[in-house]
Design a protein around this nucleic acid. Structure first.
Length: 420
RNA sequence: GUGGUCGUAGCUCAGUUGGUUAGAGCGCCAGGUCGUGGCCCUGGAGGUCGGGGGUUCAAGUCCCCUCGGUCACCCCA
């Protein structure tokens, strides 16, 4: 095969799917801007250390999934695997006024084997807020994600919320967790026979029956939170109740990045059958700005995968009756000049309009008009030209097949009547 | 990174125990009397059978390698 195709794990998004893609972004932009978030556009690659330090040296993403490369100046760079680290880097670099509320949409790259709902290049949109540890902000951020997912039509959603404690209480929890896991090591799943000591939180996330059994009586975050963390999560949950966002508390919700403290949350779609059913998630982080060389600043944010949301929308049957939006299609049976001039005129009046090229037959042009989804075809042939008129033929809607010849002077007015 | 599965026209697939010029449906293009779409009829274009190597008189069909898709694990969005 001498032809090319998109690299493994990447794909092209053509119309009409690309329109769904764009719609998600504009819906999210509207929600975010309404809540006072400003768009951040930042580079798709960063100094490798931004991600190493930001996401955590031991995290799965950093150790085995990064797209790293050296540029011609010998710099070690990496394509961004997720959104938060670069947003925080931008924050540290520019030091905007607090609290800083930013939203973004970006491709994200991870070198891993693709499967349903998982790509090497996927796209995420999300927000980050730097400079406040007010639990009401957690509520705002979670509600924003909730509203966005709801607005794009998703209904079969579940939200899980947890508090992972902070630098005061987490060490103590890890200690009891490690000692508990130690006592039951023999009963852990094969995968976690090793590594449970170094990374005990991963075990909490394990879905294998063996680990699940052990976890049933495992110590819980909820029982070892310090007073501040306890108050924080209580206020968050109270706030979610107040704004009507439904959730379930999940003591074992730990997310894959090392930076989370206190609140973590994740929305998953029960309409998605595969294992890849998380449509958005995030949480709070406290040490991130310092890790990237800035002043201690609390932060919170989430990322939501566009491809995942599209899959969830499809699974919920939201694309079943999509109609193309084109209004007009011009058919020129003479030299093409009329199609050229009419489409230009109609478009500049704000009407959507397409035409056929290459002097095709009447039948062919009309077929194209039909396929385009246009509601009305404008036909210009010798007859119309001589009379200074245009034939309007209705292709869809209740007046389908209706056809009339109108003078150029009243054409636009008549088109608007037929479209309304 | 590990494992399963698949790879024949733009798409979905058929191709018998290896045997002449590789098929169908859909889509596309052109006709079905002068300039009228979706339905119907007729015709047409389009494939180095993912790629490479091997076995054989003969390979889409068997073997090896490789690339890719897909699904699962891991992890995530």
């Amino acid at each position: 095969m001498t032809s090319f195709q998109a690299p493994t794990g990447t794909r092209d998004v053509l119309a009409p799917e690309s329109a769904r893609f764009a719609r998600l972004i504009s819906t999210f932009a509207r929600e975010a801007q309404r809540a006072g978030y400003g768009l951040l556009i930042s580079p798709m690659f960063e100094d490798l250390a931004v991600f190493n330090r930001g996401i955590g040296e031991d995290s799965e993403v950093v150790t085995k999934e990064m797209y790293t490369f050296e540029d011609k100046g010998g710099r070690n760079l990496a394509l961004r695997p997720e959104g938060t680290a670069s947003v925080v880097r931008a924050f540290v670099q520019h030091r905007p006024l607090l609290p800083w509320k930013a939203w973004y949409v970006t491709p994200a790259f991870r070198y891993e084997r693709p499967q349903a709902g998982r790509y090497r290049q996927h796209h995420q949109l999300g927000v980050e807020v730097l400079g406040s540890d007010d639990p009401d902000l957690d509520v705002e951020v979670i509600a924003l994600l909730h509203d966005y997912l709801h607005r794009v039509g998703l209904r079969q959603l579940t939200l899980r919320v947890n508090s992972m404690g902070d630098e005061n209480c987490r060490p103590a929890y890890l200690e009891v967790l490690v000692s508990y896991l130690g006592e039951h090591q023999a009963r852990l799943c094969d995968e976690h026979q090793e590594g449970w000591e170094k990374n005990p939180l991963r075990v909490l996330d394990c879905k294998r029956p063996a680990c699940q059994l052990v976890l049933r009586d495992a110590p819980r975050f909820a029982d070892s939170l310090c007073e501040e963390c306890e108050l924080h999560i209580a206020r968050v949950l109270e706030g979610l109740d107040a704004v009507g966002v439904r959730y379930s508390r999940d003591d074992f919700l730990v997310r894959g990045f090392d930076y989370y403290t206190r609140t973590t949350f994740e929305f998953s779609s029960s309409a998605l059958e595969g294992a890849q059913n998380a449509v958005g998630g995030g949480g709070r982080y406290n040490g991130l700005t310092e890790a990237l060389g800035g002043p201690a600043t609390p932060g919170i944010g989430f990322g939501s995968g566009i491809e995942r949301v599209l899959l969830a929308q499809e699974a919920e049957g939201l694309f079943d009756n999509e109609e193309p939006a084109l209004e007009l299609f011009v058919i020129d049976l003479a030299g093409g000049e009329h199609a050229r001039d009419l489409t230009y005129q109609l478009r500049s009046l704000g009407l959507s309009c397409d035409r056929a090229f290459d002097h095709r037959s009447m039948k062919a042009q009309l077929r194209m008009a039909d396929r385009s989804g246009a509601r009305i075809a404008l036909i210009v042939g010798q007859d119309e030209i001589e009379k200074g008129e245009v034939t309007l033929r209705v292709l869809r809607g209740e007046h389908e097949h209706h056809q009339e010849q109108v003078a150029r002077g009243v054409m636009v007015e008549r088109i608007r009547e037929l479209l309304s």
